[in-house]
Amino acid sequence: MAMEEFQVAIHQGKLSDAISVVQAKPLQYFSNTPINVAVVGEPGSGKSSFVNSMLGKQPGDPGAAETGIQATTTKAKDYPHPTLPQVILWDLPGREESFGSRTNPEDLKCYDFFIIVGYQRFRTIHAELVHDIQAMGKRFYFVRAKTDLDVEASRRRQPSGYDDRTVLQRIKEDCVTCLLNENVIDPQVFLVSNWDPQSFDFPILWEKLNNDLLWLKRQAFIFSLPSLSAPVLENKQATMKGKILLPALYSGVLGLLPLPGISFAAAMFFFVRFRNQCYQFFGLDVPSLTALARDVGKPVAALQAVMTSRKLMPLILWRLPDLLGAVLIMMEICWWQRYPYAGSLLAGVPSFFTSYYMLHRCLAAVAKDTQNVLSRALEGKEKMPI
């Protein structure tokens, strides 16, 4: 099982092997993987009607999406597809172009694939959706709904010399151009009528989705890997927690010495050493990251950029009591000419508790960084089949 092999590789701290295990599986292996397809767009674009057409239902049928002249979708609603196995269509609330978004970009992360539904023209809200989706490294189709109304309007404007093919080609070329301007590679555009699924590009859309489905399921499974690694990472955290007490004690004992700055230096030394141990244990050390970066075709710096545990400034702020203790030790030695009891206690005693807390924070941050690195490594890893 790919899942078991993946978790074993994560447990061993071999992130590169974990990803390779999954990507080595044939497409058919992912046929039973659930895939959540989000239908998004502006209010009134025909999203709900499009969902019904995809489900093969009419408005008012049992299980059909609610439709109307005004926006009727106020919260995300799921519709399992009756014939496509493990495919769930999600009708999402429309995004408002002028007054902000009803759909937070963060809320899109739980979906695996997107169908952007537009009407009449390519709008700013469509560009924003494209940016949000591409930022997640995911894919989408662009559907121009209500094409029958566009065709009828063009026919009325130009009754003489009217040609359906020319009008449809012009509409599609305009959509493709707008998507190319948003840096979309190989835009997939379909012109449809929600009231006649057999006309225009609806049959082509259906065929394209069927052909891409196994690939999309594979991508959905791969994007779920960071969350699937969570139980393994929790077990690894539990293992490393047993190694926190000793370096914290060392930091506290050394901090009691009447030497200015020894508490800060000792605490940072043990912290960095413990963090390096965590990196090696979780597979985030430089050799492991280099191997992962090579396999996924990304620079090591791109993977390290999502590692919050690398930041040192928060650590220095937590060590301010050490600096205060160092100042007091110097004052007691230089001006008061006595053994720096107060300075040593101020530097040493808090050092134990602060170090203990910092090491716990470090361990949790490294575990989270492992998921972040997996996510960054998987972003845009595969190209969508043409």
Rank of each mutant, 00 (worst) to 15 (best):
D174T: 10
M136Q: 13
A9P: 04
I262C: 05
A267N: 13
A2G: 11
R123L: 15
T166I: 13
S351P: 06
L205P: 01
Y356P: 01
E379F: 08
F202P: 02
S53A: 15
T147M: 06
K381F: 15
D112K: 08
T72I: 04
K241Q: 15
D295C: 08
A266L: 00
P80I: 03
S355G: 09
E152V: 08
G242H: 09
A220W: 03
D186G: 11
S53R: 03
A305N: 12
P59D: 11
F269I: 07
G44A: 05
Y279V: 12
W206R: 11
V373N: 01
A220P: 04
L246A: 02
A267V: 06
E382P: 04
K172E: 04
I116M: 07
A267M: 08
F30L: 05
P314N: 06
V21D: 07
P258C: 09
V272Q: 12
I262M: 01
G118Y: 01
E106G: 12
L257H: 07
P231T: 08
C334L: 04
I133P: 02
F30Y: 11
L92A: 03
Q188E: 14
K146N: 01
P350Q: 12
L359W: 05
P258S: 07
R165A: 14
A301K: 15
D61R: 08
N36D: 14
D150L: 05
M1D: 14
K217L: 05
L324R: 05
G343A: 01
D201M: 04
K109I: 10
G380L: 02
V189L: 06
L324I: 13
L257M: 03
Y279M: 13
G242Q: 12
A265E: 01
D295W: 02
S375K: 08
Y79G: 06
F200Q: 02
N52S: 09
V176A: 05
R102C: 06
R310L: 15
V286I: 10
S344Y: 06
Q158N: 12
A153N: 07
L180D: 09
A364R: 13
G63A: 05
S31P: 09
L315H: 13
N183Y: 13
N36Y: 14
E4K: 12
Q219N: 10
G46P: 09
S263M: 00
G41V: 07
A347V: 04
L55K: 07
F140P: 00
Q188G: 12
F122Y: 14
D201Y: 00
G343V: 04
F281M: 02
M136K: 01
W335T: 02
L15R: 15
N276D: 14
H81F: 01
M1T: 11
R102F: 09
M384N: 04
L303Q: 15
